[in-house]
Amino acid sequence: MHEGITVVLKAEQLGSVFGFPITNSLIMAWVVMAILIGFAYFFGKSLSLVPGKLQAGIEWAFEGAITYMTEVLESEKLARKFFPLIASIFFFVGLMNVIEFFPGIGSIGLWHASEFLPLLRTPSTDLNFTLALAMIAFFTIEVTGIAMLGFFRYAGKYVNLHSPIGFVVGLIELVSNLGRLISFSFRLFGNIFAGEVMVLVAGYFLPYFLPAPLMGFEMFIGLVQALVFAMLTLFFIKLAIAAPEGAH
């Protein structure tokens, strides 16, 4: 048994199925999916024209989100098109960040060769998940840009041969665009992972008392990070569909 704090940067592998690695963050992702999809299924069945409190609340949130997205994208059609993506990012990441500190997550596990392997680990503390989500956001943004502007106009944002300054600006754009992959994934991973480590450390400073309020704070941070991921995706979509400079 270990003494002191063990911080594991990568998700622990619990086993493998046909050579496919099964990590604790993958299992946790399935748990979160089951909760979300189960809720959506039963809630979607109970919808009525005269809403209850829960339905009214959710409708209010959807309405607000679509109104905001319409303002940002300047088109209600586009807002409705991208609403599922943005909302799913928020719900999926938000839920996994909030239940991160629930009892049993990280504390229930297996002993494997004198090493403790937690059964569940929030996917946002696994770079595999955040990078996968960042890639999805990245491809959505680029594909949307190409679809809305056409390949050559979109490419013209990055490869600009009209002037030397334009060329350099285009290159910077291209690099910062690719950098989004890293900033997206590490921002979410770093925030949530650091929160977990902080709660762990706080448990050594003032056991039983300090971790609880910190957990509440970290849940809030988790929701904020989910919102940040969703909003940045929205803003980058907006940037991608904007006409290139000097094109009009």
């Binding site: 992702a29 999809i37 599922p84 993506l85 799913s88 996917p123 696994d126 595999n128 890639m135």
Partner: peptide
Amino acid sequence: LLIAQAVNFAIVL
């Protein structure tokens, strides 16, 4: 794992 998590998100979506 990258593909698995991407598929997970796609299923959720």
